[in-house]
């Protein structure tokens, strides 16, 4: 790259379709990989568990972003879909003795099916009506989980055995880190490539103008249901990982608050941006954890006593501020920072 470039110019379709266009982008990717490999060796046990949670949240946030950010279908049912994934995988292992890997795959498929079913209202509804319909699906799913005693064990918690993968007992956060990192990397790559295919482009066309999309030959019915299914598949993976990582599944982990937390992640990170989902998930998991840490060091103080309330309040304030001040989220802020340095000393 020359000292001063006027932008990235493509001379062929292959070059435009490439995921990374510049040397700088490739260098950043290499640095990120080095950092991701090095971090677990330096992190304390507490932050290692936070990293694991971030990894799981990244998968869930990418899933929600596919639906809300890329296809424009708001969903308040994220918590419910996470529960479907967690219970499916947890039950298959704990009750029926399936290998963990198989159970997780089954959970992904089953959650995708459930998501497609609850996505059916999206065929006739959009915007605020869809938000209310998905809110209802959240309550219906959690109600089923709590009351279907014979299968889910009702309000009692489901205990999952420590999983084994390729002969390794996944008993420490350190070992889990690599598994979760691999899953998150896979999810990122699948999602990133999805939007280079016809399916992904169809999703974005629906978001930008559904009627125009229909006019140019996008089958709305098919792609809306497909978007719910694909998104729920990711969410199911996140749910299944939560179940095996925590070794315990209770319905309280999948309430409406969780749906809101995930919405906050993609708003803060950036709607319609895979990288944004990662930033948002990291932000929304790491900040409460940091507040937690501060609370612990200040035992008995105001912050310690009010911890849950402060965390909830921070979510709310962050959602409101980002929507008002930077609706395109951290991904956009990062883009502006890159542009600033790339164009320096010129403003634009």
């Amino acid at each position: 790259m020359a000292a001063i470039t006027t932008g990235v110019h493509h001379r062929s379709y292959e070059s435009e379709l490439r995921l990374r266009h510049t040397t700088a982008a490739r260098v950043r990717l290499a640095l990120a990989i080095v950092a991701l490999v090095a971090i677990p060796f330096a992190a304390s046990p507490f932050w290692l568990s936070v990293l694991d949670r971030i990894g799981i949240a990244v998968i869930g946030a990418i899933g929600l972003n596919i639906l809300t950010g890329y296809t424009g279908q708001i969903s308040l049912g994220q918590g419910g879909f996470l529960a479907v994934g967690a219970y499916t995988s947890g039950l298959l292992v704990a009750q029926y003795g399936l290998p963990t890997l198989l159970a997780v795959v089954a959970a992904v498929v089953f959650t995708a099916l459930v998501g497609a079913f609850f996505g059916l209202p999206a065929l006739r509804l959009k915007g605020l009506y869809l938000a209310i319909a998905t809110l209802a699906s959240q309550f219906i799913i959690i109600w089923v989980v709590r009351n279907w005693d014979a299968v889910t064990g009702g309000t009692a918690s489901l205990v999952v055995p420590v999983p084994e993968l390729f002969g390794f007992q996944l008993s420490s956060n350190f070992r889990w880190y690599w598994v979760i990192l691999a899953c998150a990397a896979l999810a990122t790559m699948v999602a990133r490539n999805l939007f280079r295919t016809g399916i992904g482009r169809a999703f974005m066309a629906i978001r930008d103008q559904d009627i125009a999309a229909e006019a140019i030959g996008v089958d709305l019915t098919r792609y809306k249901v497909l978007s719910f299914a694909v998104s729920s598949g990711f969410v199911g993976l996140a749910g299944a990982l939560t179940a095996h990582w925590r070794l315990i599944v209770t319905w309280e982990r999948f309430t409406l608050d969780v749906s809101i937390l995930y919405l906050a992640m993609i708003i803060v990170g950036g709607l319609g941006s895979i990288l944004g989902s990662i930033y948002g998930a990291a932000f929304m998991v790491a900040v409460p954890a940091a507040i937690d840490r501060v609370g612990e060091t200040l035992q008995g103080s105001f912050i310690d006593r009010q911890l849950p309330a402060i965390q909830l309040g921070v979510f709310g304030v962050v959602i409101v501020l980002f929507l008002i001040l930077e609706p395109r989220g951290l991904a956009r802020i990062w883009q502006r920072m890159k542009d600033y340095f790339r164009l320096w000393p010129f403003r634009y």
Binding site: L128, G313, V314
Partner: peptide, 28 residues
């Protein structure tokens, strides 16, 4: 007011954020 004219989905999310803030305030 800053949200006037924005996408309805964004406005819905702002009220969701507002709900979280109010709930936190009540708890505190």
């Amino acid at each position: 007011r800053p949200m006037i004219g924005e996408d309805p989905v964004a406005v819905i999310m702002v009220t969701i954020g507002l709900a979280a803030v109010l709930q936190a305030a009540v708890q505190m």
